[in-house]
Design a protein around this nucleic acid. Structure first.
Lengths: 207, 207, 207, 207
DNA sequence: CATGAATGAGAGTTCATTCAT
DNA sequence: GATGAATGAACTCTCATTCAT
């Protein structure tokens, strides 16, 4: 019989993750050591290793929880009209990009780019990519089914392209700072272009 | 009187860089140690430290030379008509993206993203960004002057946007592999969209 | 809650210092490496670095403790009559000189002479010199106040001179070995001379 | 048949020694590397190793030549009356002490103290000590034979004692700087004391 | 003879992980 | 369950000495 309940365990995990999150954001993934995580969590080495097998384990648990939330957001927004929902989604992305440097995103890139050779990370990337691609594809396809969108391009290409563009905005924002790259106008341009692709004829599609 | 000539020195440097390049590409920047570089170069520690003060120094020299070439490529292509040259440029970028995973590009991202907090690297990023932005801007502006381009968007926004998109294609290619993201068609789409932005008149360029 | 108490920590420090002391005495300060200290302490590198940041740190802690004791000795002896106390002090010095080669003194000279250009060591030397000078000066001045001493020379000169002489005896002892320099008789001569300086008239002061 | 003459060899040696001397004085014995000597001599590593087998060899040749000169000085001064010559000798020592920090003396102490365990250096120390002791002893004994000195102390003890005192003045001067230890007055006191030991009765001894 | 590039052993230091308490 | 002191492999960098040219 365990001496602490599942809830207590979960609470401890959350506690560790919260402080680890701050450290990761503050110092970056690579620059963060177990020591940092241990100290920031006000626990002992043993106390952290009891719940996580190392830095990567902590980070992955952190990611898992962030993504659950993110997916949730996306689903919730899927209720209004197709283009409006799309615009909302893009606005959400803009917000996310703007907040990139104050969140885990840079660490995520560190993690995937530095570890691009490691099997475990590769698999994770693929899963994540698949799921993002799938969600976006389904969403737009939905719009097509409903007659809202009349894409002038193959859907799969457009979705990949959109993902690339968003990824690029993320990276540019992280690397150069969002203040230096005309972010709002880039997003406006993105919307304009998407509109002309998804709703090419002059008549129906108004934002 | 030097025992080896400048050319020999240069040759040794190239030799070290060549083997280091392989290691960097093979293992990634972070995962590479001086020891790896030393061993791969079939030299001694002292022998490498005679030419470079450490891993970063090796890497930066490597980068410097790659970029000299890259800049050169770009300049050379600037001779034909504006749109054709632009297409050539984009084709060149596609090639580059395709080769991303067999070249230094992933290491470059590692280097800049992992070290985004370090002053020296920040400065390098800024310089590099500025120079890429400047070159592209000048090139397109040139086309505008010549009357070839009639951009439907502010030039600076378009250039930033193009850079973001290319950056995103790079990253997606590195992370997911170019085979999995319909790269050719993404580049076609990119060209189509650019055409409609740079040459918006109703006759020729429709999306 | 600490896993080991302050006393245990202190004990470990003492343990490291004890073995380091042997190595320093055996090999000398310069010739001793961290590796030597680690091995002699039967600990791991990490285990030593947990308590000291390097060779110099170990050595300085060692010194600090030796000097605390030394200062203590001096104070304790200050109770009987002036000349007798002085004689006791000199006897103590003779003992110390005699033991010089089996103690840290040679390392101390190494440390200060080799590092005579380094700011940190210079400061330490000055402090130490000041404190030795001050203690001796106060002590003798005390004897003057009490009417025990009637120095035929300026006090400051005499004190400097005495320190020089003792320093010389140390060095000679270290370099040539105390067996080869008539140490006892040198100390007798020293006392005779000091007597004639501190208590010059023929009447009162006899040893 | 050698390609360069003995004189040329000697000239090269002198050249190396001259520049090495500056480096030793500037940086100290321990802190000086072969690289420093090579660079300061404007020669190549091979060029220096051709004449000297290493740092120690250079230093010892340097010392040997300094001592030849020093011994010579001493001999030359031995012509006038015993006490006057003694005073001259002490004056010479004062000058030497005063110049200690701008000469090789600190390096000498480094060399002997750091290497006090090494057989070769031990032997050198002994030789040097013997020769200094012998010279001083002979000189004073000479004065005794001539009836100039009537030492109140055993001659051997006095000579050792004098050497210790001079050694102490050297060390104090090196460590604390001659400006901080009332050097002139210490030397005056030294002379006074020596006078009272060598010529104890009130009548004959005038300076 | 002279050169100086190359060698490689060895010094110092860090940090993920363990395990006795 | 929790602790945190201890471990030791791995890493960076230096410098006395050699030897092919």
């Amino acid at each position: 019989m365990p001496k602490i309940t599942q809830q207590q365990k979960e609470a401890i995990r959350m506690d560790i993750l919260n402080s680890a999150r701050h450290v990761f954001i503050e110092k970056g993934y690579e620059a963060t050591s177990m020591s940092d995580i241990v100290i920031s969590s006000s626990r002992s080495f043993g106390g952290v290793y009891l719940y996580y097998s190392g830095k990567e384990d902590v980070f992955l648990d952190l990611l898992r929880r962030e993504y659950e939330n993110m997916a949730l957001d996306f689903v919730l927004e899927e209720q209004s009209s197709a283009w409006n929902t799309f615009v909302q989604f893009i606005k959400g992305q803009e917000k996310r990009v703007r907040e990139a440097n104050t969140g885990l995103a840079p660490c995520l890139y560190e993690y995937f780019i530095v570890g691009r050779r490691e099997d475990h990370r590769r698999k994770l990337i693929e899963e994540r990519s698949q799921s993002v691609y799938g969600a976006l594809f389904d969403f737009i396809n939905n719009g097509v089914q409903r007659g809202d969108f009349h894409p002038a391009q193959p859907l799969d290409v457009f979705v990949h392209w959109l993902i690339s563009l968003l990824e690029g905005l993320y990276i540019e924002s992280i690397i150069n700072g969002f203040e230096n790259i005309e972010l709002s106008q880039q997003f406006e341009l993105l919307l304009t272009v998407c509109h002309s692709i998804l709703m090419p004829s002059g008549l129906e599609g108004n934002v």
